[in-house]
């Protein structure tokens, strides 16, 4: 895999506030990366540093092998950016707006028109002033401008905020389409939940520090969060032998519950299901992404 973005020892201070502290990672072609953190965790600052809009206090950013803040901005021709809560010049129509950005990126204006369809903006809406657009339409126009000129790197800051579920699905289809073409897609978000199955890598930042980096499975593995198994016994006979086994069962309203570590899970399930007729129901709840996220955040707080 070829790295498209390389960040080493990156820090950015605004006066006394350290927005980003000693962050390092590299992003590869054909990867979809989620940058997750609370509001104010440093996600937007990281994206601005990758765009070359602000200069790092220390450390380095290389985008497609170049410093994005320097030179003739050739690298920005290959970048697509969707700012958080994107806004446009209200008086112009959607088509004029996109044509303006296409000219700046030296992209053929007629090819830009095809993007309206790709992001799902109706042709009659494209000829209305942006002033009349709803939040979702503005977001789609924002996405259309980010897609101008087949960018190799897409930096999308909170792209799905304000989109309804159908649009959200539409949006993620677009993202996987781009990934298939070999683009690097970085999505920032303050919630992990909706990213399940959409990204192959997650970077969690908190207070300007990177606290986790890996695939969701890897993160689950590192976190070793317990799985919750709930069992309702059939009939009112004596407890089976496994109730007094290694796992700590708690009885709540007739339901037995236990939190077990990943490596003990299979063996325990094997014991529990050895006698199927003794069970009325069995539920296995894997830790959610929010649990995972909370785990990493609290892990940092105790340090």
């Amino acid at each position: 895999m070829t790295a498209t973005v390389e960040i080493t020892g990156l820090s950015k201070r605004y006066g006394k506030v350290e927005a980003v502290r000693d962050v390092a990672f590299s992003l590869n072609a054909g990867e979809t990366i989620a940058l997750v953190g609370h509001n104010g965790a440093g996600k937007t600052t990281l994206i601005k540093l990758m765009l070359g809009l602000i200069r790092p206090s220390s450390g380095g950013v290389r985008v497609l092998g170049e410093d994005p803040a320097r030179g003739d901005f050739a690298v920005r021709q290959r970048l697509g950016y969707l700012p958080e809560s994107v806004s446009f010049h209200m008086a112009l129509t959607g088509r004029e707006t996109l044509a303006f950005y296409a000219r700046l990126k030296r992209v053929d204006v007629s090819s830009a028109n095809g993007l309206f369809e790709r992001v799902g903006l109706a042709p009659e809406a494209a000829d209305r002033p942006v002033r009349t657009y709803s939040k979702g339409m503005r977001q789609r126009l924002g996405l259309a401008q980010a897609l101008l000129g087949e960018p190799r790197i897409l930096l999308l800051d909170e792209p799905t905020s304000g989109l309804d579920p159908a649009l959200r699905r539409n949006f993620y289809d677009l993202v996987s389409d781009l990934r298939a073409r070999g683009a690097t897609v970085l999505l920032s978000s303050h919630a992990l939940t909706e990213l399940e199955g959409r990204t192959n890598r997650v970077i969690i930042v908190n207070r300007g520090v990177k606290i986790a980096d890996g695939t969701l499975d890897e993160l689950r593995h590192i976190a070793r969060l317990p799985t919750r198994i709930s069992v309702q016994l059939a009939g009112d006979g004596a407890d089976p032998a496994w109730v007094n086994g290694a796992a700590r069962w708690k009885r709540r309203e007739g339901v037995l519950e236990a939190d077990v570590l990943p490596e003990e899970k299979i063996a325990l399930l094997h014991q529990v299901t050895a006698n199927p007729s003794g069970l009325a129901s069995l539920t296995v709840v894997e830790p959610t992404l929010d649990d995972l996220y909370a785990h990493f955040l609290s892990g940092q707080d105790t340090k």
């Binding site: 809009l53 003739d72 901005f73 050739a74 970048l79 950016y81 806004s87 700046l104 990126k105």
Partner: peptide
Amino acid sequence: ERGTMLLLLSYPIG
């Protein structure tokens, strides 16, 4: 203040 400058400056323009 309206947020349009941020997007504009991310384009290849000085």
